[in-house]
Design a protein around this nucleic acid. Structure first.
Lengths: 192, 192
DNA sequence: TTCACTTGATAACAAATGTTATCGCGGCCT
DNA sequence: AGGCCGCGATAACATTTGTTATCAAGTGAA
């Protein structure tokens, strides 16, 4: 796991030594909240094992905005950077093995890492990826029917279909769980 | 106009001198395409006067994703940076007075500007803002009815309601233009 | 085992939204 | 003035999607 992080951040041995000293391991069961809506984010999480969803509350209903799996990085990036209350909850779906670094520790070792342009690039790339995710997901709401969105999800992220409970997928696709059932049975009839 | 750009980028006089030398003025009528879907973006535009919409084609229909007005910066940021074909069209809605800088010129003067951390910050802030825009717009699709989305738009961006033809607004809100008409007449009846 | 709980399927009905067609208004050109 | 055209409103109808209720299967705990 640590090796994967090292590669991800393209660090030298000495740089990585300081960095990895700040990493703490965390094992938690399913349905554990890692960050609550309204709190100010203090940590960045790396997923070694398990999966996580990001969601917000609307009128008592969960609205899921993103899923994360192994070898991905999760944080409320806007809360972390601007120190504003997070709009989003971060919650485990499965039992998870995580590594996290606190903002405080990260700032402590930042001077040492500052001349590593790869780290800054990594940060910008992360921002880019998040922007792309929101952009593409938003476009699919303008462009596609719920059926089409589900089919695209099956093709591009089968892991979500396999590992995530259906009502979370429904809210991610912007439909009721009843309607997602309808979509699935519609597909089954076609393929039968 | 040039003064506004100088402030926006927080440049010193000498830095701005080099920068402004690369800026070219452009006056174009309404419905002018500044960047076509599929092309690779080469320019960044600043709007002195007029308004612009960003859209993509789906099955022969325009789907509008964003509007820009005076003193805003427009570019297909992902096409520009990654040199990939733009997913989006950039098109004027009104007669516009624009200033643009080509990517080539920007790179030419970049060494001179590189030690200006404000410029890098500005770039990251721009990325952040775009991410926020997509994030919030996407959330509103999960969270709100079309009526609510229209009301929010009236409150937060009345300029769009005032200056943009209705069928563009409809596609931006993800509804048919007929339904947007219904929403407006519904609001008129309430307020009467 | 048995009971509670969660998940997913289905039916019946209600509400929201799209589609197509028509009309009228106002701008603009000749 | 006359006529064309783009935009927006409206009506009628079709389709999609949400809501509520019910049931069945699976899972975990006492």
């Amino acid at each position: 796991m640590l090796e994967q992080l090292k590669r991800k951040f393209r660090m030298s041995d000495s740089q990585f030594a300081g960095f990895s000293g700040c990493l703490k391991k965390l094992e938690v069961p399913a349905k554990t909240t890692l960050l609550k809506e309204g709190e100010i984010a203090k940590k960045i999480f790396f997923i070694e094992k398990g999966c996580i969803r990001v969601w917000f509350n609307n009128d008592g209903k969960d609205l899921t905005t993103q899923f994360f799996f192994e070898n991905e990085t999760v944080a409320s990036i806007e809360s972390l950077k601007k120190e504003i209350p997070s709009l989003l909850n971060i919650e485990t779906i499965e039992t998870c093995v995580l590594w996290y670094i606190s903002k405080q520790d990260l700032e402590k070792i930042l001077p040492e890492l500052e001349n590593v342009s790869a780290l800054r690039d990594e940060f910008i790339n992360n921002l880019f990826e998040r922007m792309f995710h929101y952009m593409n997901h938003f476009f699919s709401f303008l462009r596609d029917s719920p059926l089409k969105r589900y089919q695209t999800l099956m093709q591009e992220k089968p892991m979500i279909i396999q590992r995530v409970p259906q009502h979370y997928i429904a809210s991610y696709l912007g439909v009721s769980s009843v309607h997602l059932s309808r979509i699935k049975s519609q597909l089954n009839r076609k393929n039968a």
